[in-house]
């Protein structure tokens, strides 16, 4: 498993821990609140970290994370950041509808390949991680590069 896969697994685990923390019941709302806040902080921190690392890889044009179509984390300057958010939300909505009919299960990845660039969208907990790179790039290979960020 290369570094990106490991980071995604970690991110998934943090997302799951966060979602579980939200389902806690009990009367000790103060401690529950603190626990939820800390777990959300860890998840967002790990998400920002992965975004920062991915954008530093050779061949990656941009990387950002979105929640319901609005930008949640990004690294460095990113042109058309809102347009990308719209594209993600539209794509996810359409795909989810078809996935239900086709019984695909929860959507994990969507890749849109254009003549010039391509966009990969990876679903992680409540957010979508979005990576933009040139059409000619082999994304899996680039993401397995040793990361020095």
């Amino acid at each position: 498993m290369h570094w990106f896969e490991s980071e995604l697994v970690l991110l998934d685990q943090l997302a799951e821990l966060y979602l579980k923390s939200q389902q806690q019941s009990g009367t000790d709302i103060v401690n529950v609140s603190e626990d939820i806040r800390i777990k959300r902080g860890r998840f967002i921190g790990a998400l920002q970290s992965i975004v920062n690392k991915v954008v530093n890889l050779n061949g990656i044009n941009a990387c950002a994370a979105y929640h319901e179509g609005l930008v949640l984390a990004y690294a460095e300057a990113m042109p058309n950041i809102d347009a990308l958010g719209v594209m993600i939300q539209e794509s996810v909505n359409v795909t989810q509808q078809s996935a239900r009919i086709l019984k695909l299960g929860d959507i994990q990845q969507i890749v849109i390949v254009g003549a010039v660039n391509k966009v990969a969208m990876l679903s992680v907990g409540p957010v979508v991680l979005c990576i933009v790179c040139s059409n000619a790039i082999n994304l899996a290979s680039v993401l397995s590069q040793e990361n020095e960020a």
């Binding site: 967002i44 929640h67 319901e68 609005l70 930008v71 949640l72 984390a73 957010v127």
Partner: peptide, 8 residues
């Protein structure tokens, strides 16, 4: 980041 603020 509107998404981050709204999410929180």
């Amino acid at each position: 980041l509107l998404g981050r603020v709204r999410f929180e």
